[in-house]
Design a protein around this nucleic acid. Structure first.
Lengths: 149, 149
DNA sequence: AAGAATCGTAACTAATTAAGTTACATGAAA
DNA sequence: TTTCATGTAACTTAATTAGTTACGATTCTT
């Protein structure tokens, strides 16, 4: 798992889970999808459990399942559950009392608040079901092409 | 200079430069504003020179000046010149050939392209002059309050 | 009840990235 | 010619995150 790919890796995992809705997938299985290690998977998607996006069960036959229908899981929720920040820049004060810094931070924070709202809205309109639909379309195309001629 | 504060640190520097438009400021002076080191300053704002946002001159009396009026310097340009990415997540393929991954990346890239366009538009409407105006407003308020009573 | 499978999590290691630092060549002004 | 600047390469340090090992807790199967 590469750096900064937590969102895409998680989506990858979730699409696989959505494609096997009746079967609990183990951390081990999920890890192989994204070429990493079961512990990294547990750590990464552990937060999704608290958000109800997935459920996990221990013991023999245990593993991970979606917590609800893919139509009701938005990328906005996933992103929040992963603890991802949508915008990368920091606006922490470093020179308390400096009016120049205060002006910079004020303007930047205004922008950030507005931008995060916009991005969250856009992400809330994309659901896991959209991803599975896209996957199935691609899968069907491959199927067709391999039967063609 | 903290991590991920290159944009705000640079803006801090630029506002100081805008407030002394006739005086070349040295890397040393700029560095003290953001509590770092002259070499870090040169490295950070070097890209702004190539974009025409600032100019630098060597030798005695040298230093840094704005390349044009603050009204004509947008945060979008500054962000680009710094080489900052507006969105933090990666969509590099890690499992070439995996249709699930392809679907995830396609959806995420669509989002990214649209989001970056939106953010760039918002940033292009904020200029360095807006920041200096905000700073001056704050400065005036402090002045008033310190003379009050 | 025993054994196997599985998650949860702490603790450690390795890899990566960005900032900070040192050093020195280049250029310009006094 | 001396001094003051930037430009930049090379190295060190610090911070973050992924990867790994280990093991306790839980649950199913036999």
């Amino acid at each position: 798992m590469k750096r900064n790919s937590r969102l895409s890796s998680t989506l990858h995992i979730l699409v696989h889970m959505a494609e096997k809705p009746e079967q609990a997938l183990t951390s081990e299985q999920l890890a192989t999808f994204i070429h990493t290690n079961p512990v990294v998977v547990r750590r990464t998607i552990g937060g999704l459990r608290d958000a109800g996006i997935v459920t996990s069960s221990r013991g023999h036959g245990g593993g991970w399942l979606l917590g609800r229908a893919p139509e009701n899981i938005s990328l906005a929720e996933i992103s929040v559950a992963l603890g991802e920040t949508l915008l990368p820049f920091s606006t922490e004060p470093e020179s308390p009392g400096c009016l120049v810094e205060q002006a910079v931070i004020a303007v930047l924070d205004d922008f950030r608040v507005a931008a995060e709202k916009l991005l969250a809205e856009k992400l809330s309109r994309i659901t896991l079901a959209d991803l599975t639909a896209d996957f199935r379309r691609r899968y069907a195309l491959i199927g067709v092409s391999s039967h063609a001629v």
